[in-house]
């Protein structure tokens, strides 16, 4: 479906949005793992981010070399305008579905 993104991709985009200026590989991975309580492979994470870049939803820039990483630079990610639009599209889709489903999600 053109313009629609998968579940994992949605997670990654949202996490990038959450972390705003500190969104780089390890941080994204740690955040998702913590929230979703499931392990993520760094390889598949970067592959997903690369695909999102190819689709034009994510931008990247190289940061300053840091001592902890042996002088290596970090790559920071950020949402593009079309990335934000894609997120809102999928959110709308879901909201509509939820509304029509009239499910009772009360947890008591």
């Amino acid at each position: 479906m053109r313009g629609f993104i998968g579940e994992f991709e949605e997670l990654v985009l949202l996490t990038i949005a959450c972390l705003s200026k500190e969104a780089y590989g390890v941080a994204i991975k740690e955040d998702i793992e913590q929230r979703a309580n499931r392990p993520i492979s760094i390889g598949s994470l970067h592959s997903t981010i690369t695909r999102l870049q190819e689709k034009g939803f994510v931008d990247s820039r190289l940061g300053e070399p840091s001592h902890e990483r042996g002088g290596r630079r970090k790559r920071y990610f950020s949402l593009t305008k079309s990335g934000t639009m894609a997120l809102s599209k999928i959110k709308n889709l879901r909201d509509n579905l939820w509304a029509d489903a009239k499910l009772n999600l009360a947890t008591d």
Partner: peptide, 14 residues
Amino acid sequence: AEDLIGDVEELYYL
């Protein structure tokens, strides 16, 4: 590949 290598190294220390 330095950003990727940096990521795995950072994870290692964690």
